[in-house]
């Protein structure tokens, strides 16, 4: 289990850096400091078919969300930026 985001305290000091492998000791230390939640990296177990299906669903969903605006100029750019952002974790 690897940290995906730095863990910082209230003053912004980094307690644990992104990429650190979590051990029982580090988890216990975080609990002692009352850190309620952390982000961990999880291995992607989706196969190509599942990823393709998720991509199709994401595209259809965004098309529905942007259905009443013309996808030109800045609105067009926004549509493409959000699409890229949503699909970045679904690369085949």
């Amino acid at each position: 289990m690897v940290l995906q985001r730095d863990v910082v305290d209230a003053r912004g000091r980094i307690l644990l850096r992104t990429g650190v492998a979590l051990t029982e000791q580090t988890i216990a230390s975080l609990q002692r400091r009352e850190i309620g939640h952390i982000c961990i990296a999880v291995a992607d177990q989706r196969n190509e078919d599942e990823l393709a299906k998720e991509r199709r669903q994401t595209v259809a969903h965004l098309n529905e969300l942007f259905r009443n605006v013309r996808r030109e100029g800045y609105m067009g750019a926004l549509y493409h930026m959000v699409m890229k952002h949503r699909l970045k974790d679904m690369a085949l």
């Binding site: 529905e64 969300l65 942007f66 605006v69 100029g73 800045y74 926004l78 959000v82």
Partner: peptide, 19 residues
């Protein structure tokens, strides 16, 4: 407009934006 586009909270559609 961005909050709707990123679906922060419930969003039914993205509204018009002044270019």
């Amino acid at each position: 407009v961005l909050a709707h586009a990123l679906e922060l909270g419930s969003s039914e559609q993205v509204p018009f934006m002044d270019e």
